[in-house]
Protein backbone atom coordinates (compact mmCIF):
# COMPACT_ATOMS: atom_id res chain seq x y z
CA UNK A 1 0.00 0.00 0.00
CA UNK A 2 2.68 2.35 1.14
CA UNK A 3 4.76 1.60 -1.90
CA UNK A 4 1.84 2.34 -4.17
CA UNK A 5 1.28 5.67 -2.46
CA UNK A 6 4.88 6.58 -2.91
CA UNK A 7 4.70 5.72 -6.62
CA UNK A 8 1.57 7.82 -7.03
CA UNK A 9 3.23 10.75 -5.30
CA UNK A 10 6.23 10.37 -7.57
CA UNK A 11 4.06 10.31 -10.65
CA UNK A 12 2.20 13.41 -9.50
CA UNK A 13 5.41 15.28 -8.86
CA UNK A 14 6.74 14.29 -12.26
CA UNK A 15 3.48 15.10 -14.05
CA UNK A 16 4.07 18.76 -15.02
CA UNK A 17 7.46 17.84 -16.39
CA UNK A 18 6.17 14.79 -18.26
CA UNK A 19 3.24 16.73 -19.74
CA UNK A 20 5.58 19.49 -20.91
CA UNK A 21 8.03 17.06 -22.51
CA UNK A 22 5.22 14.97 -23.97
CA UNK A 23 3.37 17.90 -25.51
CA UNK A 24 6.24 20.01 -26.75
CA UNK A 25 8.85 17.37 -27.54
CA UNK A 26 7.57 13.85 -27.99
CA UNK A 27 4.29 14.70 -29.68
CA UNK A 28 5.89 16.87 -32.42
CA UNK A 29 8.43 14.13 -33.11
CA UNK A 30 5.72 11.51 -33.39
CA UNK A 31 3.64 13.78 -35.66
CA UNK A 32 6.70 14.44 -37.78
CA UNK A 33 7.38 10.75 -38.18
CA UNK A 34 3.73 9.96 -38.95
CA UNK A 35 3.32 12.77 -41.47
CA UNK A 36 6.57 11.85 -43.20
CA UNK A 37 5.47 8.24 -43.35
CA UNK A 38 2.01 9.16 -44.73
CA UNK A 39 3.56 11.19 -47.49
CA UNK A 40 6.35 8.93 -48.61
CA UNK A 41 5.89 5.60 -46.84
CA UNK A 42 8.84 3.25 -46.51
CA UNK A 43 10.20 4.53 -49.80
CA UNK A 44 11.64 7.61 -48.07
CA UNK A 45 13.57 5.40 -45.67
CA UNK A 46 14.74 3.31 -48.57
CA UNK A 47 15.97 6.48 -50.30
CA UNK A 48 17.99 7.54 -47.26
CA UNK A 49 19.63 4.15 -46.94
CA UNK A 50 20.29 3.39 -50.60
CA UNK A 51 20.94 6.71 -52.35
CA UNK A 52 24.69 7.42 -52.56
CA UNK A 53 24.01 11.07 -51.65
CA UNK A 54 22.59 10.16 -48.27
CA UNK A 55 25.05 7.41 -47.49
CA UNK A 56 27.81 9.95 -48.12
CA UNK A 57 26.07 12.33 -45.73
CA UNK A 58 25.73 9.59 -43.13
CA UNK A 59 29.40 8.74 -43.66
CA UNK A 60 30.42 12.40 -43.22
CA UNK A 61 28.32 12.67 -40.10
CA UNK A 62 29.79 9.55 -38.51
CA UNK A 63 33.33 10.53 -39.46
CA UNK A 64 33.05 14.05 -38.06
CA UNK A 65 31.35 12.77 -34.90
CA UNK A 66 33.99 10.08 -34.31
CA UNK A 67 36.95 12.37 -34.98
CA UNK A 68 35.44 15.11 -32.81
CA UNK A 69 34.86 12.64 -29.99
CA UNK A 70 38.40 11.28 -30.16
CA UNK A 71 39.91 14.79 -30.29
CA UNK A 72 37.86 16.09 -27.36
CA UNK A 73 38.79 12.97 -25.38
CA UNK A 74 42.51 13.32 -26.06
CA UNK A 75 42.45 17.03 -25.22
CA UNK A 76 39.91 16.80 -22.42
CA UNK A 77 41.28 13.89 -20.40
CA UNK A 78 44.49 15.60 -19.27
CA UNK A 79 42.58 18.78 -18.45
CA UNK A 80 39.93 16.91 -16.46
CA UNK A 81 42.71 15.04 -14.63
CA UNK A 82 44.44 18.31 -13.84
CA UNK A 83 41.17 19.67 -12.43
CA UNK A 84 40.99 16.76 -9.99
CA UNK A 85 44.57 17.38 -8.86
CA UNK A 86 44.10 21.11 -8.31
CA UNK A 87 42.41 22.20 -5.13
CA UNK A 88 40.53 25.11 -3.69
CA UNK A 89 40.95 28.43 -5.47
CA UNK A 90 43.00 27.11 -8.37
CA UNK A 91 40.40 24.48 -9.19
CA UNK A 92 37.66 27.14 -9.15
CA UNK A 93 39.63 29.34 -11.56
CA UNK A 94 40.35 26.44 -13.90
CA UNK A 95 36.71 25.33 -13.80
CA UNK A 96 35.52 28.82 -14.69
CA UNK A 97 37.94 28.84 -17.63
CA UNK A 98 36.41 25.58 -18.82
CA UNK A 99 32.81 26.59 -18.25
CA UNK A 100 32.75 30.18 -19.56
CA UNK A 101 33.23 29.19 -23.25
CA UNK A 102 30.51 26.60 -22.72
CA UNK A 103 28.07 29.39 -21.87
CA UNK A 104 28.75 31.17 -25.15
CA UNK A 105 26.32 30.26 -27.88
CA UNK A 106 27.42 27.75 -30.53
CA UNK A 107 26.80 30.40 -33.21
CA UNK A 108 29.11 32.91 -31.55
CA UNK A 109 31.87 30.37 -31.24
CA UNK A 110 31.39 29.19 -34.81
CA UNK A 111 31.67 32.79 -36.06
CA UNK A 112 34.85 33.15 -34.05
CA UNK A 113 36.31 30.32 -36.10
CA UNK A 114 35.28 32.15 -39.30
CA UNK A 115 37.37 35.07 -38.15
CA UNK A 116 40.34 32.85 -37.36
CA UNK A 117 40.31 30.49 -40.33
CA UNK A 118 39.10 32.68 -43.24
CA UNK A 119 41.17 33.54 -46.33
CA UNK A 120 41.80 36.93 -44.80
CA UNK A 121 41.57 35.47 -41.31
CA UNK A 122 44.02 35.86 -38.44
CA UNK A 123 45.86 32.61 -39.03
CA UNK A 124 46.42 33.12 -42.75
CA UNK A 125 47.57 36.70 -42.23
CA UNK A 126 49.93 35.68 -39.47
CA UNK A 127 51.44 32.87 -41.56
CA UNK A 128 51.86 35.17 -44.57
CA UNK A 129 53.39 37.98 -42.54
CA UNK A 130 55.84 35.48 -41.05
CA UNK A 131 56.71 34.40 -44.59
CA UNK A 132 55.79 30.78 -43.95
CA UNK A 133 53.27 30.72 -46.79
CA UNK A 134 52.70 32.98 -49.79
CA UNK A 135 49.10 32.19 -50.66
CA UNK A 136 46.40 31.84 -48.00
CA UNK A 137 45.48 28.25 -47.18
CA UNK A 138 41.86 27.22 -47.64
CA UNK A 139 41.01 26.18 -44.10
CA UNK A 140 37.35 27.05 -44.11
CA UNK A 141 34.29 25.38 -45.59
CA UNK A 142 35.41 21.79 -45.32
CA UNK A 143 35.12 18.96 -42.81
CA UNK A 144 38.42 20.06 -41.24
CA UNK A 145 37.07 23.42 -40.12
CA UNK A 146 33.83 21.77 -38.99
CA UNK A 147 35.66 19.16 -36.91
CA UNK A 148 38.06 21.73 -35.46
CA UNK A 149 35.27 24.05 -34.34
CA UNK A 150 33.12 21.22 -33.04
CA UNK A 151 36.04 19.91 -31.02
CA UNK A 152 36.46 23.31 -29.40
CA UNK A 153 32.73 23.69 -28.82
CA UNK A 154 32.24 20.23 -27.31
CA UNK A 155 35.46 20.17 -25.28
CA UNK A 156 33.84 21.62 -22.12
CA UNK A 157 31.13 18.94 -22.23
CA UNK A 158 33.85 16.28 -22.41
CA UNK A 159 35.93 17.86 -19.65
CA UNK A 160 33.04 18.41 -17.24
CA UNK A 161 31.66 14.91 -17.71
CA UNK A 162 35.10 13.33 -17.27
CA UNK A 163 35.79 15.55 -14.27
CA UNK A 164 32.57 14.46 -12.59
CA UNK A 165 33.45 10.82 -13.12
CA UNK A 166 37.06 11.29 -11.96
CA UNK A 167 36.00 13.07 -8.77
CA UNK A 168 34.31 9.88 -7.73
CA UNK A 169 37.54 7.92 -7.82
CA UNK A 170 38.78 7.54 -4.24
CA UNK A 171 42.15 9.36 -3.98
CA UNK A 172 43.19 6.97 -1.23
CA UNK A 173 43.45 4.29 -3.92
CA UNK A 174 46.34 6.22 -5.45
CA UNK A 175 47.99 6.41 -2.01
CA UNK A 176 47.45 2.66 -1.68
CA UNK A 177 49.10 2.13 -5.07
CA UNK A 178 52.03 4.36 -4.12
CA UNK A 179 52.72 2.76 -0.76
CA UNK A 180 52.60 -0.67 -2.35
CA UNK A 181 55.31 0.22 -4.81
CA UNK A 182 53.74 2.00 -7.78
CA UNK A 183 55.38 5.14 -9.15
CA UNK A 184 53.04 7.97 -10.15
CA UNK A 185 52.95 6.79 -13.74
CA UNK A 186 52.28 3.18 -12.84
CA UNK A 187 49.66 4.15 -10.26
CA UNK A 188 47.93 6.17 -12.97
CA UNK A 189 48.08 3.34 -15.49
CA UNK A 190 47.10 0.52 -13.15
CA UNK A 191 44.55 2.29 -10.96
CA UNK A 192 43.34 5.69 -12.13
CA UNK A 193 42.99 5.00 -15.84
CA UNK A 194 41.04 1.73 -15.47
CA UNK A 195 38.77 3.33 -12.87
CA UNK A 196 38.12 6.29 -15.16
CA UNK A 197 37.08 4.06 -18.09
CA UNK A 198 33.34 4.31 -17.35
CA UNK A 199 33.77 8.10 -17.34
CA UNK A 200 35.59 7.91 -20.66
CA UNK A 201 32.82 5.83 -22.20
CA UNK A 202 30.10 8.05 -20.79
CA UNK A 203 31.64 11.36 -21.77
CA UNK A 204 32.56 10.07 -25.25
CA UNK A 205 29.04 8.86 -25.72
CA UNK A 206 27.53 12.21 -24.78
CA UNK A 207 29.90 14.11 -27.06
CA UNK A 208 29.34 11.64 -29.89
CA UNK A 209 25.56 11.84 -29.74
CA UNK A 210 25.61 15.65 -29.55
CA UNK A 211 28.13 15.83 -32.42
CA UNK A 212 25.97 13.59 -34.61
CA UNK A 213 23.14 16.08 -34.50
CA UNK A 214 25.23 19.26 -34.84
CA UNK A 215 23.71 21.81 -37.18
CA UNK A 216 24.96 25.38 -36.70
CA UNK A 217 28.68 24.73 -36.95
CA UNK A 218 28.64 22.57 -40.09
CA UNK A 219 26.16 25.03 -41.65
CA UNK A 220 28.46 28.00 -41.01
CA UNK A 221 31.86 26.42 -41.45
CA UNK A 222 31.16 23.46 -43.69
CA UNK A 223 30.80 23.09 -47.43
CA UNK A 224 27.46 22.47 -49.21
CA UNK A 225 29.12 19.53 -50.94
CA UNK A 226 30.17 17.90 -47.68
CA UNK A 227 27.21 18.22 -45.37
CA UNK A 228 26.28 16.50 -42.16
CA UNK A 229 22.89 14.94 -41.61
CA UNK A 230 21.24 17.83 -39.73
CA UNK A 231 22.12 20.22 -42.56
CA UNK A 232 20.72 17.78 -45.09
CA UNK A 233 17.50 17.50 -43.14
CA UNK A 234 17.27 21.30 -43.03
CA UNK A 235 17.87 21.60 -46.76
CA UNK A 236 15.34 18.86 -47.51
CA UNK A 237 12.71 20.47 -45.33
CA UNK A 238 13.15 24.17 -46.09
CA UNK A 239 14.60 24.32 -49.59
CA UNK A 240 13.56 21.15 -51.36
CA UNK A 241 10.33 20.83 -49.38
CA UNK A 242 10.80 17.07 -49.41
CA UNK A 243 9.22 16.49 -46.03
CA UNK A 244 8.96 12.74 -46.19
CA UNK A 245 12.68 12.14 -46.79
CA UNK A 246 13.52 14.86 -44.25
CA UNK A 247 11.35 13.10 -41.70
CA UNK A 248 12.90 9.72 -42.53
CA UNK A 249 16.42 11.10 -42.08
CA UNK A 250 15.39 12.75 -38.81
CA UNK A 251 13.88 9.54 -37.47
CA UNK A 252 16.98 7.58 -38.47
CA UNK A 253 19.23 10.05 -36.64
CA UNK A 254 17.00 9.90 -33.58
CA UNK A 255 16.76 6.11 -33.53
CA UNK A 256 20.52 5.79 -33.99
CA UNK A 257 21.26 8.20 -31.12
CA UNK A 258 18.76 6.59 -28.79
CA UNK A 259 20.12 3.14 -29.68
CA UNK A 260 23.61 4.20 -28.60
CA UNK A 261 22.28 5.49 -25.29
CA UNK A 262 20.30 2.30 -24.73
CA UNK A 263 23.33 0.11 -25.38
CA UNK A 264 25.39 2.23 -22.97
CA UNK A 265 22.68 1.97 -20.36
CA UNK A 266 22.56 -1.81 -20.71
CA UNK A 267 26.32 -2.17 -20.43
CA UNK A 268 27.25 0.43 -17.80
CA UNK A 269 24.06 1.94 -16.40
CA UNK A 270 23.13 5.47 -17.29
CA UNK A 271 23.21 6.73 -13.71
CA UNK A 272 27.02 6.50 -13.73
CA UNK A 273 27.02 9.67 -15.82
CA UNK A 274 25.07 11.52 -13.20
CA UNK A 275 26.84 10.42 -10.06
CA UNK A 276 25.30 7.00 -9.40
CA UNK A 277 27.21 3.77 -9.06
CA UNK A 278 26.07 2.25 -12.31
CA UNK A 279 25.53 -1.43 -12.89
CA UNK A 280 27.28 -3.64 -10.39
Amino acid sequence: MRHLTRNTTGALLMAPCLIWIGFFFILPIVLLAINGFREGGLASYETVFTSPVYSKVLGNTLRVAVVTTVCTLLLGYPIAYMLTVLSGWWRAVALVMVIVPYWLDYIVRSYAWLVLLGREGLINRLLISLGIIEQPIAMLYNLFSVTLAMTQILLPLMILTLFGAMLRIDRRLLDAAAIHGASRTRAFLTVFLPLSMPGIYGASLLVFVVAMGFYVTPALLGSPSETMISQTIMILATELLNWSVASAAGVILLVFSVAILVVYNLVFGMDRLFGGDGKS
Binding site: L173, D175, A176, H180, V191, L195
Partner: peptide, 12 residues
Protein backbone atom coordinates in the same frame (compact mmCIF):
# COMPACT_ATOMS: atom_id res chain seq x y z
CA UNK B 1 52.92 -2.02 3.74
CA UNK B 2 49.80 -0.17 4.80
CA UNK B 3 46.25 -0.99 5.82
CA UNK B 4 43.96 1.98 5.29
CA UNK B 5 40.95 2.90 7.37
CA UNK B 6 38.73 2.54 4.31
CA UNK B 7 40.87 -0.46 3.22
CA UNK B 8 41.38 1.24 -0.18
CA UNK B 9 41.17 -2.05 -2.06
CA UNK B 10 41.33 -1.61 -5.82
CA UNK B 11 37.68 -2.12 -6.81
CA UNK B 12 38.49 -3.11 -10.40
Amino acid sequence: GMVFQSYALFPH
